[in-house]
Simulated assay, not measured.
Amino acid sequence: MNIPSSLIKEAIGWRHHLHQNPELGFEEHNTSNLVVDVLTSLGIEVYTGLAKTGVVGILKKGKSIRSIGIRADMDALPIQEMSGVDYASCQMGKMHACGHDGHTAILLGVAAYLAKYGNFDGAVYFIFQPAEENLGGGVAMVKDGLFEQFTIDEIYGLHNWPGRPLGDICVNDGSMMASFDIFDITLQGIGTHAAMPEYGKDPILAAAGLIMALQSIVSREVASLKSAVLSITQIQGGDTYNIIPECVALKGTVRALDEDTRLMVKNRLLEYVEKLPALYGVKGSINYQERYPATINNSECAAHIRRIAGEVFGENRVIENVPPTMASEDFSVMLNAKKGAYLWLGVDEVNRPSAPLHNPYYDFNDNAIAVGIELWVSLVEKTLIA
């Protein structure tokens, strides 16, 4: 397949514009407007309003009722950019540090190619999702009726992946990324003078005991061949040197690669918070929020895209059974509702290694855009065979 160089150049231009004008979750108004303008100019049917700033484009050819959906995330992160590129962010404290500008540009390029040259029979749904970073834009799109409003047989998504060579395509049968839950713990004690601790009930001591005990859930209760993470990420309590405070607050996250492990860790965490602080005379309470499930590929869809990628780029560029990451992705909610697969696209070159994701020096590798466009176009044309 020969993607026109003019189209790749245009996609890179879209990417640079988006990089220079990042918008946070559910605030992607200008980004959505750009997406709508491009799709409309291509003669693609456009729908807006799902999850506030989400956009869905529909391109139909032929008579078949078969369909496929491809998703790109659009939001940026609250990070001050330090990359020094000519098209660096113009928005103070905001940048595309996760490559969603690249994902959006790739999908726009796919839409442009398929609208002009596409050889397929069926419908392609171009899904531009807001608020992937922490805010659950994928959850919101599903709740707003993405799969009720649009007849999508299967759905696919990608994420650029620093640390993998440019053009590597990593697709597992099963788990790719972990679930994502958060919790807020309150430990209510009795404050007193620090010189007379016997008159109070110390929530700091209870917090120390609880934090240590919680680590035993993963180290001693999760099966050795399973994966989970329980991290306390914030501790807040006390105001001065000589007062034992009334209250301590803890915050943290739980991650797991399967639902059984996720539920077990959650239930044990709730039990620890209820029972252990009481040993110190302190009352424990918790607000536990389930955010995203694990990102688990449908094995048939994963095998399908591996076959296509092998035909297009060579078997040596397709990697199966990569170790999943304990980071999370709300595309998992779409995969829970519809069969599909999620893949990682390598972006590193020998002379241009990428900074890590969510790093102030990160910049999506423009040379990955052509690879991404060719992959998605091939997936559409080899799935919806004319």
Rank of each mutant, 00 (worst) to 15 (best):
L7A: 00
I8P: 03
K9R: 13
A11L: 08
W14A: 07
W14G: 00
L18P: 05
H19S: 02
N21V: 05
N21K: 03
P22M: 04
N30W: 03
T31I: 06
N33I: 03
L34R: 08
L34A: 06
V35M: 10
V36I: 15
V38W: 03
I44A: 01
G49A: 06
G57W: 03
I58G: 00
I70Q: 02
P78C: 04
M82D: 12
G84M: 11
Q91G: 03
A97F: 02
A97Y: 02
L107V: 00
G109W: 00
V110S: 04
K116E: 13
G118H: 06
Y125R: 07
P130T: 08
P130R: 05
L135W: 05
M141S: 08
V142P: 00
V142E: 15
K143A: 15
G145P: 11
E154R: 12
I155D: 01
I155F: 03
L158D: 02
W161Q: 14
G163V: 12
R164C: 11
I169R: 01
I169D: 01
V171C: 05
G174P: 14
G174C: 11
F183E: 01
Q188F: 00
Q188G: 00
G189Y: 01
G191K: 04
A195G: 15
A195V: 15
A195R: 13
Y199D: 15
G200L: 02
A207M: 09
A208V: 14
I211G: 00
A213V: 02
Q215E: 10
S216E: 09
I217D: 01
S219C: 07
E221R: 11
E221Q: 13
L230C: 06
S231Q: 11
G238S: 06
D239N: 13
T240P: 05
Y241Q: 13
E246F: 07
K251E: 11
K251P: 01
G252D: 09
E259G: 08
R262C: 07
K266P: 00
K266T: 14
E274H: 00
K275M: 01
L279H: 03
G281D: 06
G284R: 00
E290H: 12
R291S: 15
Y292E: 03
A294V: 07
A294I: 06
T295M: 10
T295E: 11
E300H: 13
C301G: 05
A303W: 08
A303H: 12
H304R: 14
N316H: 15
R317K: 13
P323V: 12
S328T: 06
D330G: 13
F331T: 02
K339G: 14
Y342R: 09
W344P: 09
G346V: 05
D348A: 12
V350L: 13
V350D: 14
H358Q: 12
P360S: 10
Y362Q: 09
N365M: 07
N365S: 09
I369F: 07
A370W: 02
A370I: 10
A370Y: 01
V371R: 06
G372C: 06
I373P: 01
E374H: 05
K382E: 11
L384I: 13
I385S: 11
